[in-house]
Design a protein around this nucleic acid. Sequence first.
DNA 1: ACTGTGACGGGGC
DNA 2: CGCCCCGCCACAG
Length: 106
Amino acid sequence: MQPVSQHIAAIRSTILRIPKGKVATYGEIAEAAGYPGYHRQVAQVLSKYGHVLPWYRVIGAGGFIKTQLETAADQRLRLQMEGVHFLGRRVDMARSGWLSNNRRSS
DNA sequence: ACTGTGACGGGGC
DNA sequence: CGCCCCGCCACAG
């Protein structure tokens, strides 16, 4: 796979940079990649290159996993395996968020 | 060139 | 808390 567009590559590498045990939302990834507002493209990238990316570290806004696919259960499992903390149905962004409110990053 | 679509976000009801 | 609608941008048909 050879992304032809710059944003595709930027988004891909941004996803690759998400530390283990942390998660990022579509919006955060888009912004971190240098394309704020491109959350839709993040989704397209995941759908296209997700098979070689840590797709499970990408979650919905607010820490929710509102994926309609069956991968939702698998995703939560994978995240918990990496030590991501959940608060009910959502991810504890304050603790496991990569670019959001992470108070203790060490 | 135009229309529909999508692993979404956010605000409104 | 759940559902709906609109905005968003690139890609496929």
